[in-house]
C-alpha cells in the first residue's frame, strides 16, 4: 500500500551520493587551525620578555618538568575531585529543578526568580562567606563549582520545558496519559537537547569556579600551580595548568556531545547534522 512516490523520497534522502566531492573533514580543519596558532605563538612569543609572556616550546618543557616531578598529577587530582563532584551534583539537582520549574506554574512562580537571580549572582564575592560556612577544604570547592554550574543547567532545562510544542503534549493528553507520564515520556525527551546545551555551557563556568575556589581557599591543585609560578615570574609554568584546563574543557565538551548523540540521536537527524 506504500505508494512509490513515498518510497523514492525517503530512499534519496537517506542514501549518500557518491558523485558528490567530499568536503574536508572537520577535524582536519581544526587541526590545521591549532597548528597555525601554535606556530604563530612560537614565532611571536619568543620575542617577548619571558616574564611577560611565554611560547609553546617553553611551556612544553615546563609541562615535562612538572609531569616528571609528579607535582602536576597531584595538582590535577586535587582539582578534579571537587570539580567532578560539584559538576555532577549540579547536573543531578539542576535538571530535575529545571523540569519542575518549567513544568509547573506554581513552581515557576515561586522559584523562577531565584534561579534567574542566581545565574547573575557575583559568586566570587560570595566565596569568602562560603569559606566561613564550609571551611577551607574540599567542601567549599565543591560548593563553588556546584553553584556556578547549577544555574546554566537549571535555566536551560527550564527554557527547554517551556519550548516543548503544545501539540506534542496534546498528543499525550488525547491518549489520556497521566501528567507524570507526559512529563517523563514527552517533556523530558523533547527537552533533552536544551539540557545537554546547559550541561555544555556549565563546563566552562565550572572550570572557572574551580580555579577561583583554589585561589581563595587553601592554595592547592592547578590553581596553586598558577599562583605559585606567577609569584616566581615563571610564566611558562603558569601556562601549563591554564592550557590543561582549556584542553580539559574541550575534552568534556566533546564527551558531552558524544553522549548527546547517543541519548538523543533524533536531534542531529532533525537538524541534518548526522550526515556530516
Amino acid at each position: 500500500m506504500v505508494d512509490v512516490a513515498d518510497r523514492n523520497k525517503v530512499m534519496t534522502t537517506s542514501a549518500t551520493e557518491p558523485a558528490e566531492r567530499k568536503p574536508l573533514p572537520r577535524w582536519v580543519i581544526t587541526l590545521a587551525s591549532v597548528v597555525a596558532v601554535i606556530i604563530l605563538w612560537e614565532i611571536f612569543g619568543r620575542r617577548v620578555n619571558p616574564v611577560f609572556g611565554s611560547y609553546p616550546s617553553a611551556i612544553a618543557v615546563a609541562f615535562w618538568e612538572l609531569a616528571l616531578s609528579g607535582q602536576l598529577w597531584t595538582a590535577l587530582y586535587e582539582s578534579l575531585r571537587p570539580f567532578l563532584l560539584g559538576y555532577a551534583l549540579a547536573i543531578l539537582i539542576g535538571v530535575p529543578l529545571g523540569l519542575l520549574i518549567g513544568g509547573f506554574r506554581v513552581a515557576e512562580a515561586a522559584l523562577g526568580i531565584y534561579i534567574t537571580a542566581g545565574y547573575a549572582m557575583p559568586l566570587v564575592a560570595l566565596v569568602p562567606l562560603l569559606i566561613l560556612w564550609l571551611g577551607l577544604g574540599f567542601a567549599v570547592k565543591v560548593a563553588v563549582v556546584f553553584l556556578m554550574a547549577l544555574f546554566p543547567i537549571c535555566i536551560n532545562t527550564w527554557l527547554g520545558v517551556v519550548a516543548v510544542p503544545k501539540t506534542l503534549i496534546e498528543v499525550g493528553k488525547s491518549f489520556v496519559a497521566p501528567e507524570t507520564v507526559i512529563l517523563r515520556r514527552i517533556v523530558l525527551p523533547a527537552t533533552l537537547p536544551y539540557i545537554m546545551a546547559g550541561i555544555r555551557l556549565a563546563v566552562g563556568r565550572a572550570v572557572v569556579a574551580m580555579v577561583i575556589a583554589e585561589f581563595f581557599t587553601t592554595i592547592s591543585g592547578l590553581g596553586a600551580v598558577i599562583i605559585n609560578s606567577a609569584n616566581n615570574f615563571d610564566t611558562a609554568t603558569m601556562f601549563v595548568p591554564i592550557i590543561i584546563l582549556m584542553v580539559m574543557a574541550i575534552g568534556l565538551n566533546w564527551l558531552i556531545g558524544f553522549v548527546e548523540r547517543k541519548v538523543a540521536p533524533w536531534q542531529a537527524e532533525i537538524a541534518g547534522r548526522d550526515r556530516e
Binding site: 506534542l168 525527551p189 533524533w266
Partner: peptide
C-alpha cells in the same frame, strides 16, 4: 475530557520524534 473512546489524528501527524 480525553478518552480512549475517541482517537485523534492531528493535522501534522504530531509523532513523537524520538
Amino acid at each position: 475530557g480525553c478518552g480512549h473512546d475517541r482517537g485523534m489524528v492531528f493535522q501534522h501527524a504530531e509523532l513523537l520524534p524520538w
